[in-house]
C-alpha cells in the first residue's frame, strides 16, 4: 500500500479538524472548524479520483451545511461559552474509541484498490453489466458518474417526490400557504 505525504497529512488534518468540531464549546467555532474538515475531506475524495463526491462535499459539506447551521443559530440562541473546550466525558470517549477501533479493524479486510478480486468488480451479473452497457445506454464515459447521475436519476426523482410530499404535508399541518 503506497502512502504518500499528501494522503498522510490530509488524514491528520481531517482527524484534527474532526476532533476540534467535537470538543469546541462554542457552537459557532465548531461550525467554522467543521467547514475546515469539509475542505480536507473534499481534497481526500479528489485524491481518490472521485470528482463527483468531492464536488458534492464541497457544495453540501462546506457550503449548504455551514449556512444552514449558521442560520439556525441566528434564529435561536447561541449560548455564550466561558470555556474554550467542552468538558470531556471520558467513559463515552472510551466507548466511542473502542467502537471506532472495531470498525477500523475491518479496513484491513478490504481488497486493495484496483484489485480484480474485489467483490464489486468480480460480480459479473451486476458490475460487468453496467461496465459493458453504460456508454451504449447513457452516453456517459465514466461508469460511476453514469450510475450516480443517469441510472440513479430515477432514485433522485423518487426522493424529490417524497420531499415535495413532506413539504406539502408540513404546510397542511401548519395551516399555511407558503413557507416563510
Amino acid at each position: 500500500m503506497s502512502v504518500s505525504l499528501v494522503e498522510v497529512s490530509l488524514a491528520a488534518f481531517v482527524i484534527l479538524a474532526a476532533i476540534g468540531t467535537a470538543i469546541f464549546r462554542d457552537v459557532m467555532a465548531a461550525i467554522v472548524v467543521f467547514a475546515a474538515y469539509s475542505l480536507g475531506m473534499a481534497v481526500l475524495y479528489t485524491l481518490m479520483l472521485a470528482p463527483d463526491v468531492a464536488m458534492t462535499e464541497a457544495a453540501i459539506g462546506a457550503g449548504v451545511t455551514t449556512i444552514l447551521l449558521i442560520v439556525t443559530i441566528a434564529k435561536t440562541n447561541r449560548s455564550s461559552a466561558e470555556e474554550l473546550i467542552e468538558v470531556i466525558h471520558w467513559p463515552a470517549v472510551v466507548v466511542a474509541g473502542t467502537f471506532t477501533a472495531v470498525v477500523a479493524w475491518t479496513v484491513f479486510e478490504f481488497p486493495t484498490i484496483g484489485s480484480d478480486e474485489a467483490i464489486a468488480w468480480s460480480n459479473p451479473s451486476v458490475t460487468q453489466h453496467y461496465l459493458t452497457y453504460t456508454y451504449v445506454e447513457t452516453g456517459v464515459t465514466n461508469a460511476v458518474t453514469a450510475v450516480l447521475a443517469a441510472y440513479r436519476g430515477f432514485d433522485t426523482f423518487g426522493e424529490a417526490v417524497v420531499v415535495f410530499a413532506v413539504g406539502v404535508a408540513v404546510l397542511v399541518v401548519l395551516d399555511r400557504e407558503v413557507f416563510t
Binding site: V6, S9, F13, L16, G40
Partner: peptide, 9 residues
C-alpha cells in the same frame, strides 16, 4: 502539494 497540506495543519 504535500508541503501545502502540512501548512494546512
Amino acid at each position: 502539494a504535500g508541503i501545502f497540506v502540512l501548512l494546512a495543519i
